[in-house]
Every structure is written in C-alpha cells, then in structure tokens.
Amino acid sequence: MDENGRPHIPTNQVVLHEDKKYYASAVEVYGEDVETLVMEEDAQPLTEPIIKSVKLRRFQAQEFDLPETVYQKEFMADFTTKPELIRNIAVAGHFGHGKTTFIDCLMEQTHTEFCRFDDKDVRYTDVLYIEQQRGCSVKATPISLLMETTRQKTYLTNVIDTPGHVNFADEATAAFRVSDGVVIVIDAHEGVMMNTERLMKAAMTEGLPITICINKIDRLIVELKLPPADAYAKLRYTIDQVNVLLK
C-alpha cells in the first residue's frame, strides 16, 4: 500500500489484453444520469465521406441555334473559302478595361437579336462557368464577325477575346501568334497600366500592327468631372504614353 492507502501496482506488471483499459467509459465521462447509446456498426457507408465537399457545377455555354445577323449566313460561309478576305484580330488590354464588353458592342451591331437587358454586360465570349462566376476572362475565346471598312470593303474578322489578368498572360501571347493585328484597349481613367505595357511589348515582338482603343471615356465626365480641356489633356497624355512605348 502507498501513503494514500491505494494498492501499489508495479510498473512491469503483465496485463492481459482483455483487461486493458484504453479509454474512459461513458459513465465516467458523462455521468450516471446521462443516457448513452453505443453503436456496434457504422450507419454511414465507407463510400460516403463524413464531411461532403461543396459541389460546384461546371458548365460551358454552347449555342445550337445561331442568333440572327444583319447579313446572310451563307454570305459569311463563302468568306471562309477566301483567305485573302480573312483577318484575325486579338483584343488585349489590362484587366477590367472593357475588352469583353467591347466585343459585346460588336455583337450588338452585327446581330439583330443581341441586346443587353437592364444595362448589364452580357459577356458573350465568357462561356466558362468560372468566367461568369468571377466576372473575368480566363481563356482566349474567338468569335467570327463580318465587318466593313470605311471604304465599304467587307472582311471576315476572327476576333479573339484575350484575358486581361496577368496570371493568364499565356492565353494572350498564344492569341498573338495566330493574329494579323492586335487592338489594345485602354481605360481612359486608369491609362496605361503595367500589363498594358507588357502586352504592347509582346505584340511588337511578334511584329503585329497595333490599334489603340481608348475605352470608358464617360468616366472622365461622370467620375472625375473634368472639363473638356482637361479631358482632352488626359486623353492626349494616354496617347503620348503609348507613343513613348512604341519608340
């Protein structure tokens, strides 16, 4: 017996397996007044996880009935047999500068059934679920349109909407490889950004002609509330930045 009156148990004592006690009993844990239920078998099968992960449905939008256009579809199909009348154009720019919305405007001019409800962006070229969910382009998406020049010469234009986020810069670079020219979209309020410079340098490396599209000019009036002279100076400064980069 020890000093507290308890029997002394040697540490090297041999204990049988059925006599070992690894965990406290339910009565010792919860008390005698608590009803406990011990299940011998699992009610939940092993194939079903204990904590289910949140399932996000992945989808991709595909059209089976093409929207009505202002031209005949047979006329557009005939252009595919004339390579000299086909132009591949990449639309690039910094994130959020309005590339996808710019293509929505082209769709609205060439398709009679295309319309924007409640002044919301349709984002016609964002066909992936994650693009619609996050509101940004992830993959470069081409779309074919018939566009006229100022001399009423019609070309089949394959417009490629490229992502503006720097993490998806490889999609824009791949689009430059198959393009005949590039349209650089620049926000009139934010001006030339870091990714804008990178895209322009990539286009110059590929030897592509560059067209500058200054977008969101209304921000100069609505948000900055600039007078006409200051708004002109702001636009002129953006063009000067582009020319310095081209030099």
Rank of each mutant, 00 (worst) to 15 (best):
T110P: 00
S179M: 12
K82A: 03
Y237I: 04
K139S: 14
D33H: 12
E41T: 12
I51G: 07
T125K: 01
D218N: 07
P142V: 13
F59K: 00
G31V: 13
L128D: 09
S137D: 04
K52I: 04
D65K: 06
F117Y: 12
L156Q: 05
E84P: 00
V27W: 08
V27I: 11
L146S: 03
A229R: 05
F75W: 02
D2W: 06
E41Y: 11
K153Y: 15
P163E: 13
F95A: 05
T69H: 03
L85I: 08
K20W: 03
I9A: 08
F79L: 09
E18W: 06
V222Q: 04
I86P: 04
K201G: 07
G96N: 05
L16I: 05
D119C: 04
A172N: 07
P49M: 03
K139Y: 14
I217H: 07
M107G: 09
K225Q: 11
N243G: 01
L145T: 06
T81N: 03
I210S: 09
D218P: 13
S144E: 10
L246D: 12
L208R: 00
L85M: 10
T149S: 15
Q133I: 12
E171T: 11
T47L: 06
V29F: 11
G96W: 05
Q133L: 14
G164L: 05
R57N: 12
A172R: 04
I184D: 08
V29N: 04
E28Y: 07
K99E: 11
